[in-house]
Amino acid sequence: MAQSTEANGTGEKPGFDLGQGPGRLLVWLYGVFTVAAASRAVVQMLLDFGKAPLAYLLSAAAAVVYAFITYSLVRGGPRARRAALVCCAAELAGVLTVGTWTLADKSAFPDATVWSDYGMGYLFIPVILPVTAMLWLRRAEGTTGR
């Protein structure tokens, strides 16, 4: 929650909630992606896990990363911001790695993951979202007074 300088008693510039303003859209998008990736992974693992276990496990991992980032954005504070930054960087690395892998070796993934082809099945939001979130989180770093 945002605090006034009087409330925190430090005389620092007041901070803001990570989930306010543009952060609210990030919370919403990460929440939607948490549900989408988790639902996709659960259905795929229940119906045909043997077909593409790596792809389905990567979708489940993406859901966990999305859930943690959502939680961190809602929680707010310097520690949550740093944790979210680390997760966003890991998410971006995952999207770029899996995206490149799916383009280079189509046979490695018999079925798509959330991050296949850089998130093309999700309008490339999986590659845009972590970059946007990292920019927002870096901006938040400068206003929270650490």
Rank of each mutant, 00 (worst) to 15 (best):
L18N: 05
L25E: 03
L57T: 13
L73E: 01
V42T: 14
S59F: 05
V64T: 08
S59H: 11
V27S: 05
A63Q: 09
V43S: 10
L26A: 02
A67Q: 08
G21N: 08
A37Y: 10
L46Y: 10
G77Q: 02
A52V: 11
S39R: 08
S72T: 08
V35H: 08
L57E: 06
V64L: 15
T34M: 07
A60V: 11
W28D: 00
A38E: 09
L29M: 15
V27D: 05
A55T: 14
Y56A: 08
Q20K: 08
Q44G: 05
G77T: 06
A36R: 06
R24S: 04
V42Y: 11
G50S: 15
V74T: 11
L58R: 05
A52F: 09
A63L: 14
V27I: 11
D48E: 15
G23S: 09
F16Y: 11
V35D: 03
V64C: 12
V35L: 14
A36D: 08
A62L: 09
G50E: 15
T34R: 04
T34Q: 10
Y30H: 13
I69L: 04
D48I: 03
R75P: 06
V43G: 01
I69N: 00
K51V: 15
P22Q: 09
L46G: 14
S72H: 05
L54E: 10
Y56H: 11
P53G: 10
V32D: 03
Y30P: 00
Y66S: 07
F49P: 09
R40W: 03
V35F: 11
Q44D: 14
V42M: 11
F33S: 01
S72W: 00
A60P: 12
L25H: 03
V43F: 10
V32E: 04
D17S: 11
L57A: 14
G21K: 01
V64Y: 06
S39F: 13
T70P: 01
L58V: 11
V32I: 15
L73M: 09
F16K: 05
I69S: 00
L73A: 07
S39W: 10
A63R: 04
T34E: 03
A37W: 06
V74G: 04
A61T: 13
A61Q: 12
L57P: 01
K51T: 15
A63S: 14
L58Q: 07
R40K: 14
L58C: 11
